[in-house]
Every structure is written in structure tokens, then in C-alpha cells.
């Protein structure tokens, strides 16, 4: 009996330093943020009240939610397609594709955002191409607006979606689809009835990952949005660094955190979250 206890406490000892580190550098600052949000400029929930009264804040939340949702849907769909391709081509092609995906992952977000500006702007390469092949007479407004922002964000997030989905797809034995085909299912029926349901965990991981990440985005929206697409994170930064309204900034940051936790809670009702995060 004592032997067993010893092992348990030994594990705890091993984990303790990491827990301590997390508490100091993660939990404690979080508590600080929460504290500031209810004490500045004066103690109380005044900052939170603004969430309900300020039309501007509503607009920002709505913009953020809209763009993040749109980005998430597009990214997961595109990511699924790419992951599907990767799971079905030969080893060498798969490696090449993986390399390309990881390569963009390692590029700085700033470089990517500016690259998109160059491609999407009024006299940029895409508009030149569209006009050259006659699809449009006047250049399209592709950047400095929500369209540009979504494009930039989807592009950034794709590896985040592709990787978990691909990991899932790889584990799906081809015998399932063969069995379905043999039982009379067309390729489409086999995909919808068997393959897609089996890839659900990957899709859910990707969705959560992309959504939570995109909530915190502000560089890409700032550069590609022409200043007109203001998202929560941007506003938090302004409140924190420029106008020094720390009460507001922390309130928004806390609300964002709660929003994410809420999303996780809702998802958790439909899906075994532990499985999604890797437990077997």
C-alpha cells in the first residue's frame, strides 16, 4: 500500500514544477487581469455594464464573431480538402505537400499579410490577372476590407486546420470505404455515410483550434482591413496601450476568455472533448 502511494506522490513531485510555473506565469497574471477589470476606474462591474450598453462594442463583437466564424468555416472546409488529398496520394507527394504547408507556417505573419496586400490591392497581381483575362473591366476591391481580412486569415490558419484533420484521416482504415463500396454504396454515399463521420474528431479539433486562434487576431485584420475592420483584439490593444483604459481592456480580455470557454462548454456537450484532445 505504501508502495503505491509513493509512486503517486512521486508523479506529483514530477509534475509540481510545471504546475508551479503555470500558476506563476499563467494563472496569476490571469487573476491580475480579472482583478483590474473590476477595480478600474472604480470598483464594481461598471466595465462589464458597458458590454450591454455600448453600441460600438456590440458592433465590434459582431464583426469579430462574423469574421471568425466565416474564417473558421472556410478554413476547415479548405483544410479538409487538402488533408483528404494528402491522405490519398502517394508518400512522396504527401511529403511534398506537408513541406509546403509547414513552410508557410514558419513564415512571419507580417510577411504573409503584406504579401496578400500586394496580391490583392487595386493594381496588384490578382486584379491584373483578372483584367488581363477579361473577367472584369475595373479592378475589384479585394483588400482593405473584410474580404481581404478573411483571405489573409484563412491563409494563415490553414495549416492549423490541415494538420489535425490529416492526422485523423490517416488513421481511417481504407477497408471501411471498401466495405461500404462493396455493400453497394456509391463513392458519394461511402464518403458521407462512413468516411466523413469517422473524420469528425479531426474536424472538431480543427474548428476549435481555428476559431479560438482567430479570435485573437489583430495584425492581419489591421493590415488587410484598411483600418475599417476593427476586431476585439485590436480594440483591446488600443485600450491598453494608447488610451490607457485598462479597466476596459481587461474587461474585454476577460470577456473574450469567457466566450472561448463558453464555446468549449457547448462543444463539450456534443462531443467527448477528452477524445478530441487526444485521450484514448
Amino acid at each position: 500500500m505504501t508502495r503505491v502511494l509513493d509512486q503517486q506522490s512521486r508523479y506529483w513531485l514530477l509534475v509540481m514544477p510545471a504546475l508551479l510555473l503555470m500558476t506563476v506565469f499563467y494563472v496569476y497574471p490571469l487573476i491580475q487581469v480579472l482583478w483590474i477589470s473590476v477595480t478600474e476606474p472604480e470598483p464594481g462591474l461598471g466595465n462589464y455594464a458597458e458590454l450591454f450598453t455600448s453600441g460600438f462594442l456590440h458592433k465590434i463583437w459582431w464583426t469579430t464573431t462574423r469574421i471568425c466564424t466565416l474564417t473558421t468555416i472556410l478554413t476547415v472546409v479548405l483544410g479538409y480538402i487538402v488533408a483528404f488529398a494528402m491522405a490519398h496520394v502517394r508518400e512522396r507527394q504527401m511529403t511534398a505537400m506537408m513541406f509546403c504547408i509547414l513552410l508557410t507556417f514558419w513564415l512571419s505573419v507580417l510577411i504573409r499579410a503584406f504579401a496578400w496586400v500586394m496580391l490583392l490591392r487595386t493594381n496588384g497581381m490578382i486584379n491584373d490577372l483578372l483584367m488581363a483575362i477579361g473577367l472584369t473591366d475595373e479592378p475589384l476591391r479585394l483588400s482593405r476590407n473584410e474580404f481581404g481580412v478573411v483571405v489573409g486569415m484563412v491563409h494563415f490558419m490553414l495549416p492549423l486546420a490541415i494538420l489535425p484533420i490529416y492526422a485523423n484521416l490517416r488513421g481511417i482504415s481504407p477497408s471501411y470505404v471498401s466495405a461500404a463500396r462493396g455493400l453497394g454504396a456509391s463513392a458519394r454515399q461511402a464518403f458521407l455515410g462512413v468516411y466523413l463521420p469517422l473524420s469528425k474528431p479531426g474536424i472538431i479539433s480543427a474548428t476549435m483550434l481555428v476559431f479560438v486562434f482567430s479570435l485573437g487576431f489583430f495584425i492581419t485584420p489591421a493590415i488587410l482591413g484598411g483600418g475599417k475592420v476593427v476586431m476585439i483584439s485590436e480594440y483591446i490593444r488600443v485600450a491598453f496601450e494608447e488610451t490607457l483604459l485598462w479597466g476596459k481592456a481587461t474587461m474585454l480580455a476577460t470577456s473574450l476568455l469567457f466566450a472561448v470557454l463558453l464555446v468549449l462548454a457547448v462543444v463539450g456537450r456534443f462531443v467527448d472533448l477528452r477524445k478530441v484532445f487526444g485521450a484514448t
Binding site: S108, L110, A113, F217, I219, A222, I223, G227, R237, E242
Partner: peptide, 19 residues
């Protein structure tokens, strides 16, 4: 080119649009 900060991946460091 953007001034000063070299090769950082952290968004908040970059001051891309606030100067």
C-alpha cells in the same frame, strides 16, 4: 521595410500599424 524589430513571430511585438 518595417523598422527595427527583426524576425519576430509575435503579433504584439510588431507595431505594424501603430507608430
Amino acid at each position: 521595410k518595417k523598422p527595427s524589430i527583426k524576425g519576430t513571430l509575435y503579433e504584439k511585438d510588431l507595431y505594424a500599424d501603430e507608430e
